[in-house]
């Protein structure tokens, strides 16, 4: 199945490159966003030194972890963003008459330009910031980093899959997705512990995005977690598995409802 996904991504990339000007403008446009993102960290820290005890480099490192994970998500899992339309346009009528599982078919249904645009800014950010913070790199660290990055992408996807489940009942779920995205795109620049009680709770237990970068950063800096458990800096892979199981289960219930009611 992985073969099909890679085949499709490769072919899509090839077809996008048929219009190189268009493609390059889109890549440049989204890379610009990569720059504005870092400004959300740079400007407050240039005025106030630290946010919640962390300086620019620490925050930049944390954000680059998130952004690389997000890049993996965009490359592999982002076709679920348009799940509303898949249901509304009756695409499931075609997914369900093919031998592959619908989830595989959705993963192979499209190609987002974000698959490439996140990589340049995030990896650059990671290389620069990780040289400015005190981290001793060893084989174990690097292995853990790779696991964290992939697990983070799975966490983002798990939430997306969970939200997708709602579109089997409701026509429009964009703003529900948008609510999750507000946490994803606006709260990940800053350490969760500055936000009082409600937001860290949501980022840990509802949309567990804090496990993409906030908690793992504690591991790399070898510091204790300020909120909840000291185990959380190691918990990302486990959270990814649990979140995916929940997301998948809910989506499956939605699909069963679709098959019996044909919404």
């Amino acid at each position: 199945m992985l073969k099909i996904i890679l085949l499709l991504k490769w072919k899509s990339l090839k077809s996008q490159l048929q219009y190189p000007a268009n493609f390059l403008i889109a890549v440049a446009g989204i890379s610009v966003i990569g720059v504005t993102d870092i400004l959300l960290i740079l400007i407050p820290t240039s005025a106030f030194e630290t946010i919640g005890g962390w300086g620019f480099w620490e925050l930049g490192f944390m954000f680059s972890l998130w952004k690389m994970s997000h890049g993996i998500h965009q490359a592999l899992f982002s076709s679920f963003w348009g799940h509303d339309n898949l249901v509304r346009n009756g695409e499931y009528d075609r997914f369900l008459v093919r031998p592959a599982h619908p989830i595989w078919q959705i993963l192979t249904s499209g190609f987002s330009i974000g698959a490439i645009t996140e990589w340049l800014p995030s990896v650059t950010m990671f290389i620069i910031t990780s040289s400015q913070v005190a981290i001793e790199w060893n084989v174990f660290n690097i292995l853990f980093l790779l696991i964290i990055l992939f697990s983070g992408a799975v966490i983002e996807w798990a939430v997306s899959l969970f939200i997708s489940g709602f579109s089997f009942w409701f026509v429009q779920t964009q703003h529900l997705r948008g609510t999750a995205h507000t946490f994803l795109f606006r709260a990940m620049h800053y350490p969760s512990h500055i936000f009082g009680r409600a937001i860290p709770f949501i980022l840990t237990f509802v949309f567990p995005y804090a496990f993409m970068s906030y908690y793992p950063t504690h591991y790399f800096f070898a510091i204790d977690s300020r909120i909840y458990s000291d185990f959380f800096p190691y918990a990302t892979p486990l959270v990814a598995i649990i979140a995916l199981a929940i997301g998948f289960a809910f989506w499956s219930i939605g699909l069963r409802n679709y098959q019996s009611t044909g919404t």
């Binding site: 407050p44 005025a47 606006r186 709260a187 800053y190 500055i194 936000f195 009082g196 409600a198 937001i199």
Partner: peptide, 11 residues
């Protein structure tokens, strides 16, 4: 709320 809180912390 996120940005309101951010400035409260910074100040």
């Amino acid at each position: 709320f996120v940005f309101h809180q951010l400035w409260a912390v910074l100040f």
